[in-house]
Design a protein around this nucleic acid. Structure first.
Lengths: 329, 329
DNA sequence: GCGCGTTACTGACGCGAGTTAGTGTCACCT
DNA sequence: AGGTGACACTAACTCGCGTCAGTAACGCGC
C-alpha cells in the first residue's frame, strides 16, 4: 500500500483514479511521488471486483481458422480497437473462435470483459442474440439485419457501386463480378447489390453469365474467373476482394488476356500487398483501422450507457493504380 | 450464488474448480445442474483476486504500426497462442505497442496478465529486461541474445541455409540475397548468416555486390533488387521474406528477366498469398501457428513454475512451387 | 461565541470468489 | 458402548481496492 505517503488508502484511490474530489495539489503530488517511488501498480482484479468493471474489451472472431489467417486487415482492425480502448484505459482481449467449438458468452457474462465486438459470419449465431437480449454491451462489426445491437461497418453497397462506376466511367460495358464470399455473407450480398445498382444506374443489363461466387482465398477467385471466361470474355472485372482479384488476374493471364490492356480489374479492401501486385491493383480502400476504432468507441459508449447509433457506416475511397484502364478502342 | 443447490459456497467452489476433494458424484451433479440452471458464471475479477491469478496471457507486439499491419502471419501466431491459452483455461490479451509511446510493464505488474509473450524488435528494450529481472514470466518470441528469458523462434540460420541450398542444388552459383529487414534485427542477420553458410558450405564466394538490405514492405524489396541489378545479374535470389520476394519479382520483370526461366526466386515465411503470386512462390514455411502455440505453452509452464528450456527452435520446411527452376544450360 | 459551509481527509464496509481450519455424521472395529 | 477415522460439508477469513458516510479543522459573517 502506497499509504506510505502519509495519507490514507482512500486518498490514494481518489488521486490515482482522478476522482474530481477536493484534493490539494500538494497532497496529490505527494501521492503520485510515493506511487512512483514504490513502483505501485493497483491490482487489476481487485479494481475490477471493487469497481464492477473489468476495463477490458473483447474482440470475438467468429470465423474459421482459414478466414482468420487470410484476413490481411485483421491486424489493422485490432490496432484501431486497441487504440479506442487505450483512450479509456481499457485493453483488448482477443478470442479467435472456431465456430461450433467454443463459446464466448462467458467472456462477458463472467465480467471478464465489459463488452464485446463480434465479427465474422453473424447469421445463425444464437449466442449473439442471447447476449444482446440479456442487455450486454455488444457491437457488431459487419451487418446483421434484424439485430438490435449497434453495428459498425463500411457501406458495402455504395462502395461496390463506386468501384463499378469507376469501370463504367472508363468506358467498360461488359463488367464481370466475382464475389468475395458465398452470398450468405451479407458483405458479399451487399457488394453484389452495389454492382447491380451501378449497372442499372448506367442503363446496363445484368448478365448472369458475368457473375460468379468467390470464396476466401485467391484460388476461388481463379476458379470463378475461369468459369466466367469459359462462357464469355468481359471488358472489366469487379473482384469483390483483393485476394479474389489476385486469383482473377492469374486466370486472365492464363487465358492470354493482359491486365489492364485487355481487361481491367478493380479489387476491394486495399490490403497491404495490393500496391505490389502485378499490375498494382486499383481497389477500394477499406479503412480497417478506423473500423476498429469506431467499433471500440461505440462499445465504450455502450458500456458507459451513452447512446449509440444503431448503424455506423464508414466511407471508403477508391485507390487508383494500374489494373484499370480506359476501354480499348 | 449457486448455493441454491442446497450446498455451501465452498462446495460450489470445490466442484467448479475440480479440486480433487472428496465430493460424492450426487452432490457434484447437483451443483453442476444448479450452475447450469442458474446460468452461473463465476466473476472473473473475484476469482483473480482470491486465487491470485488472472488467467490471462498478454501478447505484446513491440512493432511499428506498419510492421503490424504488414505481418501476414500475425493472425496465425495469435491463433496458436490462443489455442495454448485455452488448454489451460486462459485467454489472450493483445497489446499492440507503438514503440516509445506506451509501456506494457504494468500489464503484468498489475496482475492484469500472469505473463507475457513479447515479440518485435527486442534490442533496446529496457522494460523487457526489467520485467525479466523482477522475475515475471516472460517469453520472447524471436531472438534476444543475452536475455535470460526463454525464447521461442524458428531456426533462422538453418532455414535460410536450407533455402539457399535448394538454389545451389538447382545448379545456381551467383545467388543474391535481399534481407527481410535492417540487420539490427536478429532475424535479418540470422537469415543472412544462413545464406553465407550455404555459400561457404558449397565452396562459393560471398560477393557483396549480390547482397542488399530490404525492409518491411515490397517496395524495399523492389528497390534492393534494382540496386543489385544495376551492378550485376544473379542467377537466383534468396528473398528473406515473401513480401520482399514480391518486390524482387517485380524488379526482375521490369528488367526483362523472367522468373524462374532467367532468375530463380525463393522466399521466406509462406504467407497465405505466396501460393498465388505469379509465379507461385517457392518459399520456406514458417510454422506461425506452432510458434504461437509453443510460446503459449512455454509461458504457461513458466507461470506454473515448471522448467522451460531457454531456447526453443522450431523447424521449417521448404515449399516448392514455381518460382525456382534448374539453372538454364 | 455560535452556527454554517467548505475543505481535506479517514474508517469501515463490501465486491465475489478461493481456501483453511474445523464441525458433524456415519460405518466399522474393538 | 466407546473409540476411530474417513467422509461430506461449512463458517469464516482473505485477496486489494472503490466508495460512502462521517469527522475534524478552518474560515467567515453576525
Amino acid at each position: 500500500m502506497a499509504s506510505r505517503a502519509g495519507v490514507s488508502r482512500t486518498t490514494v484511490s481518489l488521486v490515482l483514479n482522478d476522482r474530481s474530489s477536493s484534493i490539494p495539489d500538494t497532497t496529490r503530488q505527494r501521492v503520485l511521488n510515493a506511487a512512483r517511488d514504490l513502483d505501485y501498480h493497483p491490482h487489476h482484479s481487485a479494481r475490477g471486483l471493487a469497481g464492477g468493471r473489468s476495463h477490458t474489451l473483447a474482440l470475438v472472431l467468429r470465423q474459421s481458422a482459414e478466414q482468420i489467417a487470410g484476413d490481411a486487415l485483421l491486424a489493422e482492425t485490432l490496432r484501431g480497437l486497441a487504440g479506442a480502448a487505450r483512450s479509456a484505459h481499457y485493453r483488448v482481449l482477443v478470442e479467435p473462435l472456431t465456430p461450433g467449438e467454443a463459446t464466448y458468452g462467458d467472456l462477458v457474462r463472467s465480467h471478464r470483459a465489459d463488452g464485446a465486438v463480434v465479427s465474422g459470419p453473424l447469421f445463425d449465431d444464437p449466442e449473439l442474440s442471447d447476449l444482446v437480449g440479456d442487455g450486454f454491451p455488444i457491437v457488431i462489426q459487419g451487418n446483421l439485419p434484424g439485430s438490435s445491437a449497434p453495428s459498425v461497418d463500411i457501406d458495402n453497397v455504395a462502395s461496390a457501386r463506386g468501384a463499378v462506376d469507376h469501370l463504367i466511367e472508363l468506358g467498360h460495358r461488359r463488367i464481370a463480378c466475382i464475389t468475395n464470399a458465398p452470398l450468405t455473407y451479407t458483405s458479399a450480398a451487399d457488394r453484389l447489390a452495389g454492382y447491380r445498382a451501378a449497372l442499372e444506374g448506367a442503363g446496363l443489363a445484368v448478365d448472369h453469365d458475368l457473375i460468379e461466387e468467390g470464396g476466401f482465398d485467391a484460388a476461388s477467385g481463379h476458379r470463378a474467373m475461369a468459369a466466367v471466361l469459359a462462357r464469355t470474355t468481359p471488358e472489366a472485372v469487379f473482384a469483390a476482394s483483393d485476394v479474389i482479384a489476385l486469383g482473377v488476374i492469374g486466370a486472365l493471364r492464363e487465358a492470354g488476356l493482359a491486365v489492364p490492356e485487355d481487361v481491367s480489374v478493380i479489387g476491394f479492401d486495399d490490403i497491404p500487398l495490393a500496391a505490389y501486385f502485378d499490375p498494382p491493383l486499383t481497389t477500394v480502400r477499406l479503412p480497417a483501422n478506423d473500423l476498429g476504432l469506431a467499433a471500440g468507441m461505440a462499445l465504450l459508449d455502450l458500456i458507459a450507457g451513452r447512446d449509440v447509433p444503431l448503424r455506423t457506416l464508414l466511407a471508403t475511397r477508391i485507390v487508383i493504380r494500374s489494373s484499370t484502364a480506359p476501354r480499348a478502342t
